[in-house]
Amino acid sequence: MFAILGDIEFTVAGGISGMERRGTADWAEHARIQGKPLLEWIGEGLDVCNLTIELHPILGDPEERLRALRRAKAKHEPLAFVMGSGDYLGAYVITEIDSTTRRATSVGQTTSGIVQLSLKEYTGKFTRKIGGAGLLSPALTGASGAVMGSPGMVSKLSPIASATQMAISHAKTAGNVLRAGKNLYDSVKGGNASMILGQVPQLLGVTGRAIEPLQGLKEVAALLDDGSDLARLSDDVLGSIMGSRSSLDPVDLSNIVDRFSASKDSLGLAFDKMNSAGSRLAGLAAQVVTRRA
């Protein structure tokens, strides 16, 4: 399997022929009297993925595959996007479906064509629904598309998210916040005391956003049979985050440079601790994608 989006599987044998990922960062441009404008990092942009899917009868019913993708788009719901390697990319929404017909029947049914599927990262509240003991609905078993593993075979099961999936979601959110915080600290570190002092509210804001997902990770880890290491990870990272925040409260012009340096070091430690759990989290994602959790 190449990837899975919600309950829709994509395979090379089922027609996937390409994938493009794009990430952006938002920068504000401030005009200055004499000299070039000054850029200020605002935040990370939403990731975008574009999938290229070939349509052909030997890969599954082209019309049914298109209908399945259009149904998913029409629901206007975020969907979990997981690579076949187990790498959980996060929640995405379908923003665009472009289909090109190369050959068709006399009544206009597509027999050969190509689909460009555009996905955009979703950062709102999200709880992933995963299938149970299999992806395919029994009613679809035996269909040519099911045999080939093409997109379009959607399970009728909609159970609540597993503890494993919730742990991955909390960890990913915390990791993204810490990465954004690290980038912000790096952009501020070269400024003078007055400029750094003016950025303190924003620094406290970005570190504060990591608290809730870390607490959520600890709570969900208690539900896992082997989650004690994730609970410790949450405590360790949260401890570094709180240390980073306490270094900036209170501050003034006389101590901001030293306090900022201490805060930056603590945040860097939190980021490194979270980053060190990458293999562990990838293992959890692999359990989800193989229906073992």
Rank of each mutant, 00 (worst) to 15 (best):
H170M: 08
I160G: 14
S162N: 05
Q165F: 08
K189H: 05
I168D: 03
S169D: 09
A163M: 08
K172E: 06
L184S: 00
G191V: 03
A161D: 10
K182I: 04
I160K: 15
K172L: 13
A193Q: 02
I168V: 13
G190E: 14
L184K: 00
L178V: 01
M166I: 07
I168M: 09
V188S: 12
N176D: 14
S194I: 03
T164S: 12
A161Y: 00
V188K: 05
G191I: 02
K172H: 06
S162I: 03
A163V: 10
R179L: 10
P159V: 04
V188L: 10
D186G: 05
S162A: 12
A167V: 04
S169P: 00
A163S: 14
P159M: 09
G175F: 13
Q165G: 03
K172Y: 01
N183Y: 08
N192W: 03
A167T: 11
G175V: 04
A163D: 15
S194V: 08
A171Q: 02
T164D: 14
N183F: 06
P159Q: 11
H170V: 01
A180F: 10
R179F: 02
M195G: 01
K182E: 14
G190T: 13
M166A: 09
S162F: 07
S187L: 04
S187P: 09
A171S: 10
P159S: 13
S187C: 11
L178P: 04
K172F: 02
S162Q: 10
R179G: 09
S194F: 06
I168L: 14
N192Q: 15
L184E: 01
N192T: 07
Q165D: 07
Y185H: 05
T164P: 03
S187F: 03
Q165R: 02
L184D: 01
A161T: 08
A193C: 06
S194Y: 05
A193I: 00
A171D: 00
V188H: 07
